[in-house]
């Protein structure tokens, strides 16, 4: 009997802890949305109420149609999609080479890639600025895509290598005996099996590019080239009191990340590399 009660006490504590975690995780996001839908005239009077007494979508419409929000959004889409696409392409090839070949210099190349993950990226912000200036790629989305792609390739390569390692070598050998060239085996057998991995990598890189602020601040200065983080930062410094609109913009910026998150959530723990494809 005693053990029963202590069990239920422990159980209650566990649930309480879980609830606290959920509240802590969700509250800031909730607040963002709450201010965004509170009518301007109530923001000060009802500032700290948990629920607004009425709500409005005015802030969203004015953000969407009266500001440069859509331009920022479009720029961020171009940059993030471009980065995700090129990074995944380059990283897939490199990850495949790491996973399937033994070759001279492999250890050195891996070490170099690891080093790029270790040093402060800000260390190269100044040289990159000068190099980009020399290449006339300052203030250009192409320049941003190139820089982001390079930044993300090492991590994405290790990720893809993990996915390839999870696919038995036998499969492509069987395909090669069945009549494939190595490249055909890659395309017809290995590639379809890596699709979940590819999707996850694309998503990761997309989010990374979507969130990047400091290099974008440095490399972009004209209004029509700004990505979302830069735009929002500028927006905040310019209209520091238009809370509702800022939070509406923030809420909108959250949407792509959340969509991505919902898509990959189930992969997170069940091991990104675990044999999702084991026969």
């Amino acid at each position: 009997m005693a053990s029963r009660t202590s069990f239920s006490v422990a159980g209650t504590l566990r649930y309480a802890a879980i609830i606290l975690y959920v509240l802590f995780a969700l509250f800031p996001i909730y607040w963002l949305v709450k201010i965004a839908i509170t009518p301007d005239r109530l923001i000060y009077t009802e500032g700290t109420h948990i629920w607004p007494s009425t709500f409005t979508l005015d802030n969203f419409t004015s953000v969407l149609f009266l500001t440069d929000f859509l331009v920022y959004f479009k720029n961020s889409m171009i940059v993030s999609l471009g980065t995700a696409f090129f990074t995944t392409l380059v990283a897939t090839a490199a990850g495949y080479a790491f996973s399937r070949f033994h070759f001279r210099g492999k250890a050195i190349i891996i070490a170099l890639m690891l080093i790029t993950q270790m040093f402060p990226l800000l260390m190269i912000i100044a040289p990159i600025y000068k190099i980009m200036a020399g290449l006339r790629l300052l203030d250009s989305l192409t320049g941003l895509i190139i820089v982001y792609t390079a930044f993300n390739v090492p991590f994405a390569t290790f990720l893809m290598q993990g996915f390839f390692d999870g696919i038995p070598k036998d499969l492509e050998e069987a395909a090669m005996i069945d009549g494939c060239t190595r490249f055909e085996a890659l395309r017809k057998v290995i590639f379809p099996l890596t699709l979940p991995g590819l999707a996850a990598t694309l998503g990761f890189i997309f989010t990374a590019a979507w969130s990047e602020l400091l290099f974008a601040l440095m490399l972009i200065n004209s209004d029509d080239k700004m990505t979302f983080p830069v735009g929002l930062k500028t927006f905040v410094s310019k209209f520091a009191v238009d809370w509702g609109q800022m939070m509406a913009a923030g809420t909108l910026a959250l949407i792509p990340s959340c969509i991505f998150f919902i898509l990959i959530q189930r992969f997170l723990v069940q091991g990104l590399t675990a044999g999702a494809v084991k026969g």
């Binding site: 038995p168 036998d170 050998e173 395909a175 090669m176 099996l193 026969g279």
Partner: peptide, 28 residues
Amino acid sequence: EPRERDIAMVFQSYALYPHMNVERNLGF
């Protein structure tokens, strides 16, 4: 190349293509 040798091989792990059904595996 393996594909030019006119051989077939049965692997220890069977190496069936997980994304193809039995018929396509057989006929690949």
